[in-house]
């Protein structure tokens, strides 16, 4: 499909880190089957470093590719570094996304923030994460 870059197609056809983590240190599930995207991100954290990340996604080519990319981007990062990962970074790492698919990268960012938020909660610490309510699902209405 020419609307997707070859990097996006590669992450779609051969996604990295598909799966689940048992007893994960943080799990975030975002999205809505009605909208056609649901992402679930699992992270394992040791000494403040994310040493493993896995994902499951219900969604289109861009949704799967951005999920795969975000797991690549967080592995080996500290919690603080992970908090700074933006949807723009995900999209850029994929060589760009069609405008109508940028919301998938936003969802990937939210999935990450949701997993980090869960990590803080499981640790019993106050969470610095701000998850915008309902953000990332602004559909361009006709």
């Amino acid at each position: 499909m020419e609307q997707y870059s070859s990097k996006v197609m590669d992450h779609f056809a051969h996604p990295h880190n598909v799966g689940e983590i048992e007893n994960a240190d943080g799990v975030g599930t975002v999205g809505n089957p009605v909208c056609g995207d649901v992402m679930r991100l699992y992270i394992r954290v040791e000494n403040n470093i994310i040493n493993d990340a896995k994902f499951k996604t219900f969604g289109c080519g861009a949704a799967i590719a951005t999920s795969s990319m975000v797991t690549d981007l967080v592995k080996g990062k500290s919690i603080d570094e992970a908090l700074k990962i933006s949807n723009a970074a995900v999209a850029e790492a994929l060589g760009g996304l069609p405008k109508v698919k940028m919301h998938c990268s936003v969802l990937a960012e939210e999935a990450l923030k949701s997993a980090l938020d869960d990590y803080y909660k499981k640790q019993g610490k106050p969470s610095p994460v701000q998850i915008p309510a309902e953000a990332g699902h602004e559909h361009e209405m006709e």
């Binding site: 056609g36 995207d37 969604g59 289109c60 861009a62 949704a63 109508v100 361009e140 209405m141 006709e142």
Partner: peptide
């Protein structure tokens, strides 16, 4: 017939 394949993102 998915939302993602329609330009309006509605199914």
């Amino acid at each position: 017939g998915s939302a993602c394949t329609s330009r309006s993102l509605k199914s």
